[in-house]
Structure formats: structure tokens, C-alpha cells
């Protein structure tokens, strides 16, 4: 942090230059991914999957980066959101309402972590581990004591439109599109959800409450001196953040067609990887760019993982190990690069 740097050059208002660079990088990344998928034989289902999980990446951005709060709650908020959504849809509730309920469930999980942190002064890392541990049982109870709730034959956001969309697709582009119709539909619907959520968040983070939440992560002393309750900001921040993960859980459940207690396992580490991948590849500066980068990072993560699976022809039992290795690569590469840079500098 350049705190006492002498007066910097009168800085240009962050103009179109940087903005342009960012969107240029987004476009280049999109092209690279498209080529990669085409020639690496990655099924486009990986995009829909990435979009389903993307908001969990945004959660990690909000907790770790914006609030400066080491929060692992996503591992609990995700299956809870998924379970709430599945149980409601199973009971005949409209998918939209089930999704909102999943958001609320995720938000309550975040609230639990925030309250443990604030009331008992247990730091975020431990507080969230306590919450995840308890959340496992809560998820089981929500699902009526079963570890799995299938949605076969129920109307989800995807299945509601899938037949119409398939017919339309086949009509327009011929029969070879039949196989991809569900994947394409997922990409469209989830893409829309993610974009809408990001736009709302972008607005929210620039309101007074949003500013106060951002300031809490950087300088909570100043927040208190401004007459704002920084604990309240941590509560709101963790609730909004984990609500997004609950929402992601509901999307993935509808995509898979079932809810499962083990659904969120290891998600926190993927979220962290997503944030770092987004930062390294897109170099975001402004709030809006940071949000886009976190979501895009999750996409890149899922697509890379899918590529490894198809390239090495691995069984699905290996999924967690592959995830761990991709995370290691995402976290480790920038650090190795830094070490190499400073080594080179010392030996020049």
C-alpha cells in the first residue's frame, strides 16, 4: 500500500484508456477460451456449469477482497441454498421463488458467521468453519433427513423451457443441434441471471451502504469515526455475499437435477482460485471490473478442469484431486512468477 508515497503525478481521471484495456482483455480471453474449447474438445456444458458456480466466485471476492474477511462459509451456504431450492421445487413452488429463497438461506448462513465473529470475537476463519460444520446437519434436515433430493420431472428454470427451446433450435439449425440444446439453454438462462446479479451488485457497491462496506474492509476505524456501525457493515456484507452462493447453489441444483449434501465440498478453494485467475488474466481496477473478473475466473476454472478431464480421459471420481491441482496452479503460478522475477533482479 503506497501510503506515504510523495505526491503522485496529478492522476488522470481513470479514463477510457484503462476501461478499454480491460474490455480488450475480456475479448481476447473470450476468443482464447473459444478456441481452446473448440480444439481441446471441451463440451460447451462446461460454460453452463461455470456460470452456475460463477456467483460463488463473486462471494469470495466480496468476503476476502472487499470485506477483508477470511470467510469459508460458502462451503455451507452452497448446499443449503441448493437444498432449500430443491425442496421447494419438489413441493411445487415456482423456480423463481425457490431461487430467491435459496438466496435468503445463503444470507442467513452468512449472518451466522458474522454473528459468531462479532459476538464471540472468534475470527472469520474459525467462525465459518463452525458454521460449515453445523450447516451440514441443517442441510440434511432441510432435505427431510435424506442426503439427496431428485428433481426428476419437476419444473425448473431450465426444464420449463427446454422442450420449446429444443424444437426451435432444431427447426432453425437442423437436427445436429438437438444434443446441445440443454447446454445452450443453460448458458443463456444462467448467463442472464449472472449478468442481472452483477449489475445489481455494481449499483449496490456504489451506494452509501456499499461504500461503507468497502471502507470497512480497508479502514474500519474510519468507518466508526464516520458514525457508522462497522459490525453492521460486516453483517450486511457477509449476508449479501453468502446469499449469492446460496443462489449459485440453487442454479447448480437445477442444472444437475438433484440436490446433495456434499455439493459445496471444496467450493471455497475454487472461489479463491476464481478470484485470483480473474485478477491475473484481466487485471481489473474498478469495482465493476473486479466483479466481472471474479465471475469470469470461475468460468475459466471450470473450463480448464473440464479440459483436463477430457484430455486425460479421467473418471469423475478424480474430480476433487483435479480441482485441487487446478487451484494449486492458479494460486502457485503467480507466486512462482514473482519469485523468479525477484531472483532475476538480484542476479542482474
Amino acid at each position: 500500500m503506497a501510503v506515504n508515497s510523495s505526491a503522485a503525478e496529478p492522476q488522470q481521471a481513470r479514463g477510457s484508456n484503462i476501461l478499454g484495456d480491460f474490455f480488450l482483455r475480456v475479448i481476447v480471453l473470450t476468443i482464447v477460451i473459444a478456441a481452446f474449447m473448440r480444439f481441446g474438445n471441451v463440451n460447451i456444458g462446461a460454460i453452463g456449469q461455470g456460470l452456475g458456480y460463477a456467483l460463488a466466485g463473486v462471494t469470495v471476492f466480496l468476503t476476502f477482497r472487499v470485506l477483508g474477511f477470511v470467510d469459508l462459509t460458502v462451503d455451507g451456504a452452497f448446499p443449503i441454498g441448493g437444498a432449500v431450492c430443491a425442496v421447494l421445487i419438489f413441493g411445487g413452488v415456482r423456480a423463481e421463488i425457490a431461487i430467491l429463497a435459496a438466496f435468503v438461506a445463503g444470507a442467513l448462513t452468512g449472518l451466522a458467521t458474522a454473528l459468531i465473529d462479532i459476538l464471540f470475537k472468534i475470527e472469520g476463519l474459525l467462525a465459518s468453519i463452525i458454521v460449515i460444520t453445523g450447516a451440514y446437519t441443517v442441510t440434511l434436515h432441510i432435505m427431510g433427513g435424506k442426503s439427496n433430493v431428485p428433481l426428476l420431472g419437476k419444473e425448473t428454470l431450465i426444464s420449463r423451457h427446454s422442450r420449446d427451446f429444443r424444437n426451435w433450435l432444431v427447426e432453425q439449425f437442423g437436427d445436429q443441434m438437438r444434443r446441445q440444446s440443454t447446454n445452450l439453454l443453460e448458458i443463456m438462462i444462467f448467463g442472464l441471471v449472472v449478468i442481472v446479479v452483477l449489475v445489481i451488485l455494481y449499483w449496490f457497491l456504489r451506494t452509501e451502504i456499499g461504500l461503507a462496506i468497502r471502507a470497512t474492509g480497508k479502514n474500519d476505524q474510519m468507518v466508526r469515526a464516520t458514525g457508522l456501525n462497522h459490525h453492521l457493515m460486516i453483517i450486511i456484507g457477509l449476508m449479501v455475499a453468502n446469499g449469492l452462493t446460496g443462489l449459485a447453489g440453487s442454479m447448480v441444483v437445477q442444472q444437475f437435477g438433484f440436490a446433495d449434501v456434499s455439493l459445496g465440498f471444496g467450493l471455497i478453494i475454487r472461489g479463491l482460485a476464481a478470484v485470483i485467475i480473474g485478477e491475473v488474466l484481466l487485471r481489473p481496477r474498478t469495482v465493476g471490473q473486479l466483479l466481472i473478473a471474479a465471475a469470469a475466473g470461475m468460468l475459466v476454472f471450470d473450463i480448464s478442469r473440464a479440459w483436463i478431464f477430457s484430455a486425460l480421459d479421467l473418471p469423475t471420481t478424480d474430480i476433487q484431486l483435479v480441482s485441487a491441482l487446478v487451484v494449486l496452479a492458479a494460486l502457485g503460478t503467480p507466486r512462482l512468477y514473482d519469485q523468479w522475477q525477484s531472483y532475476r533482479q538480484r542476479h542482474n
Partner: peptide
């Protein structure tokens, strides 16, 4: 942020 001083933070921009 400073202008919020003395009241609750809201959704104003």
C-alpha cells in the same frame, strides 16, 4: 462517506 455522518447509511449514491 463523510456526508453520511450523523444519519444512517442508505441506498443514495
Amino acid at each position: 462517506l463523510a456526508a453520511i455522518h450523523g444519519r444512517r447509511a442508505g441506498f443514495r449514491r
